[in-house]
Structures are given as structure tokens and as C-alpha cells.
Design a protein around this nucleic acid. Structure first.
Lengths: 156, 156
DNA sequence: CATCTGAGTTGGAAATGCCAACTTAGCAAG
DNA sequence: CTTGCTAAGTTGGCATTTCCAACTCAGATG
């Protein structure tokens, strides 16, 4: 066979995204960042994650360009570091919204949606969907997945 | 504090989705299912995943309603089981598309997009986006995240 | 200089993942 | 009716990752 799993994965955007986002806790850290967490203790208290794991995840997210480490200083305190979403991090909103949409339907909690996405200005609810260039909305079943220019042929 | 991390996670659709999808290899198994893999050996050859891990992931995905186990029989062979996407599984296309879109921009391979999503009928390219009920498209920066009815207040 | 506080580090046990070798079930050839 | 073949796993041993608790560190304040 001419394409190894390793080569296939290197060419796959899902796999490359998961290099940064795929470990346990990572997406939950990002979720809390969207809810306003910036400090080590924020993330730790909200998630209950072990501190060594949190250290490792924050590190990976900073290296991956999702979070930026930024100094801050509370009055009467020394300077410390906090973690804020970069632009790349902010664009993960799409991925989280996709998880929320799927989970609300297929893994319901029984309490209704935990999170809603709304138009910043009008507060209208907003959903995640497939859209053609001319603005038609398509359901997932109307969309087909095809190898793109960066794909290796599956001649194996 | 009144909300433990455990309670918060139980109410969070991201966390509940990740219960099924969040382990290593899981989303890559789903990706290969979208590319047509159905059999144990398909997944194994394409991903290079260890067989015991693959067994565990397929099991979790079946229990989570993403894949269905279905008997098949090749001529001259005994009956075996294959794994096909359920409707819930097919709706993960949105999540994968969000990963692809993010990865293509923020973790480029240098070879172009590995996967493209197109209109099944017209082959027009399709993208994933936020949409209001009246069909306006919003960029991620125009969308705000708010706690929904199923959320616990963050009184901690 | 002693204390407090946020942000980690360290050490050891438990769980998870990886790899290679083995097992299992039934069909077909002989 | 036994032997071999094949897909789909299981098993055992080792390496890595996660979890938890306790400890460290560094600078601001009294």
C-alpha cells in the first residue's frame, strides 16, 4: 500500500486539529475560556482538573496558538500570568457550537440546552449549519464529503 | 460553592458529547466511517490503531448510538459484523466539518484542504457557518455564548 | 522577616494505550 | 470430518498518561 496511516493523518485537518485539541480536558478548558475563565485557579475550580494536567493543557493550547499567556496584576499582588483566547481560539466557537448542537439532540441532559448561541447585537438565537456560497442552507444529509486537493489518494 | 465541576459537566452538552467522542482515536474512527470504512480491518488498516483500542472505541460508539453493528456476509465467508453510521452518527458531519475548517486555516498542512464538503446535488462547495433563523450568516465574532435553560448558575 | 496567595511542581498509584502474539468461529477444499 | 484460511477480535506485558495529595516557589504585605 502506498499511503500509511501516518501519512493519511498528516494530511487530515481533523487529525491536525486534534493534535492541539484532542487530549482529555482540552476542549473543556476552551469552553471555560469562552465562559470567561482566564486564570489557572479559574480553570481548576470550574473543571476540577488535576493541576499538572491543567498545566500541560494550557501549555499545549498556548503552543497551538489557541490561548495567549498575558501578564496581569491584581492590586496588592505580584504580577501573574493569565490565559486569553487568541483569534484562532475564538474561532473554535464553531467547533464548540457543533458539539453543543449534537449533544443537545443526541445526548440530552433532561434540563434543556446548557448553552445557547445568540446574535451579539439582536440576541436572536443562532444555529450552526452548512451553507453554500450563494447562501442556501443544507442539512448534513445534503452535504457530501470528498477528498480535497491536499488528500492522498486511497490507493492502498 | 453550590456547583461542583461534576455538576457543571453533567449539564454541559460539550462534556456529554465528549463522553462518547472525546477519547483518542474516536473522531478519527468516525472520519473513516464517513469515508466509507465499515469493517474492523478497514478501520485498523486506515488508522493504524491498536486492535484492542479499536474494539473499545467501536464499542463506545455503538453504545453511544453513533455506529450500528450490522451483520454482513461475503460470499464463501461466514457472517460477520460491520459498523455503519446511524443518523446520529451522520450528524457528526457538522462537527468534523468544523474541525476541518479550523484545521485548514490554523493548522495548515501545506498541501491544501484534505477534505471538502460539497452540495450532494450540485457539487458546489459548502461551508460551515452560524445562521440566524431568518437566514443571516454571522461570523463567530458576531455570535455570543450564553448559558441556556439547562445551565446551572455560576454562583460558586 | 513572617505570612499569604496564586500558580504551579513532584511523587506514587491507577488507568489507558501500544504492540505482538494468540484465539475463535465457520466456510471450503480435500 | 479434518485441515486450512480469514476477519474479528482477545490477551499479556510494557510504556505512557492521568489522578490525587502534598509540597514548592516567588513576590506583595504587615
Amino acid at each position: 500500500m502506498s499511503t500509511t496511516p501516518r501519512e493519511r493523518n498528516a494530511r487530515c485537518s481533523v487529525a491536525r486539529s486534534l493534535d492541539v485539541l484532542g487530549e482529555k480536558w482540552t476542549l473543556l478548558v476552551v469552553r471555560e475560556a469562552f465562559f470567561g475563565a482566564t486564570r489557572f485557579a479559574d480553570f481548576r475550580a470550574r473543571l476540577g482538573v488535576a493541576p499538572d494536567v491543567l498545566t500541560a493543557r494550557l501549555e499545549t493550547l498556548v503552543e497551538g496558538g489557541v490561548l495567549a499567556r498575558r501578564p496581569y496584576r491584581d492590586e496588592g499582588q505580584r504580577q501573574r500570568e493569565e490565559y486569553v483566547l487568541t483569534e484562532a481560539g475564538a474561532e473554535l466557537k464553531t467547533i464548540l457550537a457543533a458539539f453543543v448542537a449534537w449533544g443537545d439532540v443526541h445526548r440530552p441532559s433532561g434540563f434543556g440546552p446548557s448553552t445557547v448561541y445568540v446574535d451579539r447585537d439582536t440576541e436572536e438565537p443562532v444555529r450552526i449549519a452548512f451553507l453554500t456560497d450563494d447562501g442556501r442552507e443544507l442539512g448534513p444529509e445534503e452535504v457530501s464529503v470528498a477528498p480535497g486537493p491536499g488528500a492522498l489518494s486511497r490507493s492502498a
